[in-house]
Design a protein around this nucleic acid. Structure first.
Lengths: 331, 331
DNA sequence: CTGTTAGCGCATTCAT
DNA sequence: ATGAATGCGCTAACAG
């Protein structure tokens, strides 16, 4: 076992209170003794026991992080950002996975509280709402969700995506989402639709409705661009197009959301809208830290999304060449 | 604040020890009082304070998990598996990210210990070794790494990959890794090479050596298959091939490692070698749990990898059609 | 079988 | 400016 507060107090001939006061800056302690204490602490390699402190102060110095589905590829970034922000603020992160199941999510919340988490950051399952509890909770969801504490501006991101394609001359655009139960996806699609110009034809497609979407047939229907609510879906579309011999972005432009790790690595690189994960994480941690200091819950914060232009989006094909694919040109 | 042990003891007219004994099964307590205690606990919704217990027992009930780079897409699965395994064993998971930096890794280890982690599971940075400390550590790396506690059979996986391609008739195969500093990647490539038949030409390529690898030119050099040490690299190769108009697997077979989440979603689906994340996680947690019970460190465990065959691998093209690509056929 | 007692390591009064 | 004393909630000895 390590050295205790008492040890270093005894060795210095002072009281434990003095040592504690020095270390926590709380105190009226003379410069002289402060130096002695600090050097002794260094010498002995003393580390305060979190258990003792937690019992005394009722604070564990730990925040819970509950995620809906760790296997979602966006998770790594958000988790990393939160861990970094929390560490900077002196908190540890206790992690839990709800497997997308509302029951498991509830149990995870209870487990975190039982473990003494000072606060909880949660990215809720689709369609679940979080009832406020005794321990403060920061919710990262969509701006349109009640109880949301901080989120990316998914609507604004959708609008930005749409404007990007309009600028490139696209006028017939497919909007592809996975599930309507996701408030995030709904917001993104809404944003796209509101930004569409009157002369722009838009078709909204939800994968949960279709057995299997035939991406390639969209081209013969005159669509020149596709925006997916996730880079995952965009990647699927991209590979389908390329496999069928259609050039991206020459024949069709493709873009997604979240700027996942692979999006910059594939060929062509995927144009995407990135969340400000670091900003969101910092907000969530700050939110909790502030409430732990006794302040009331701050208003929800919405952080802008950032357009990352890569090679998967380009000028709309001219009407004549619209149905022409690469092979035909080459022969 | 919640109810304390004392409360429920007082309400029942028994001692705190009796309640504690009942709850921890430690005790010589009559059936009668046990029932009364349990029902009172239920009624009051009593939850033991981890802080108090931790201080008393010196055990936090928490394991640290230190990852080299959360943004690695394999992380989600391994983290999820470990969280699940730990929860089953009654542990919480305190997470930390070393950003691939050995210094940060060391600091993360210290932070975990300071927070009172009972044990630490670590996936080390490339090229780092973990010195055993006072708190038990389980290392998840490669079988060839000293100090490794549990890992997938990366060599065996490499061999399996090679045999899969040999069976399909491939005899000129490119092996693509990212960094030689990764023991995991080394093992995978070694496994591939040992399984290559004498009549099979193999070329080992490390991306850290090349400014930018020209995947497409490999085809004109007669390669009919490519194995990457990661699905990420395989995905890059796949999209490059498809963009250039080469059909996968008709013209070239591609396979990777780790069966990342996107591998089943792209077209064609990526053939890959999957780690048994759940098994690895269970082993790591069991390893730590056993050592916390006072047992000596168990020997390292190696878990087999599983071949997941999808559409990106197929029969080798016949020698005559080897240099022929899709467009030429169609014209 | 059950109750009493004594800390675990720390932060915090209240005296000095 | 410092020290002595107190108890956070719990469990492990020991006593009954």
């Amino acid at each position: 076992m390590q050295h205790k507060l008492k040890d270093i107090a005894r060795e210095l001939g002072v009281s434990t209170a003095t040592v504690s006061n020095t270390l926590n800056g709380r105190g009226r302690v003379s410069e002289e003794t402060q130096r002695k204490v600090r050097s002794k602490v260094e010498e002995l390699g003393y580390r305060p026991s979190m258990a003792g402190r937690a019992l005394r102060t009722g604070r564990s110095g730990v925040l819970g992080l509950v995620l809906p589905d760790i296997s979602n590829p966006l998770f790594p970034e958000i988790a990393q950002a939160i861990e970094t922000a929390a560490a900077r603020a002196g908190f540890g992160i206790l992690i839990a996975d709800s497997h997308g199941d509302p029951d498991a999510q509830g149990q995870a919340l209870v487990r975190m509280m039982q473990r003494g988490a000072d606060g909880i950051i949660i990215v809720p399952c689709r369609g679940t709402r979080i009832d406020e509890t005794t321990t403060p909770v920061a919710v990262i969801d969509a701006a349109s969700t009640e109880g949301n504490s901080v989120s990316a501006d998914h609507r604004g991101g959708g609008a930005t995506a749409m404007r990007h394609l309009l600028q490139l001359g696209h006028r017939k655009i497919a909007l592809v989402g996975q599930s309507r139960r996701s408030a995030v996806q709904i917001d993104r699609v809404e944003g796209m639709k509101t930004a569409a110009s009157p002369d722009c034809a838009v078709r909204e497609i939800w994968l949960e409705d279709e057995a299997k979407l035939d991406y390639v047939s969209l081209l013969s229907q005159g669509f020149t661009a596709l925006v997916a609510t996730s880079d995952i879906v965009a990647l699927t579309a991209l590979t389908e197009f390329q496999r069928a011999g259609h050039a991206v972005p020459h024949d069709v432009s493709v873009m997604g959301f979240d700027d996942l790790s692979f999006s910059s690595l594939i060929v062509p690189g995927l144009t995407s809208l990135a969340q400000d994960c670091a900003g969101i994480a910092a907000c969530a941690v700050a939110h909790l830290a502030s409430r732990l200091d006794g302040n009331p819950a701050p208003p929800a914060q919405i952080l802008p999304m950032r357009l990352v232009v890569r090679e998967s989006t380009g000028p709309a094909p001219s009407p004549t060449s619209n149905l022409t694919n690469k092979e035909t040109f080459q022969c």
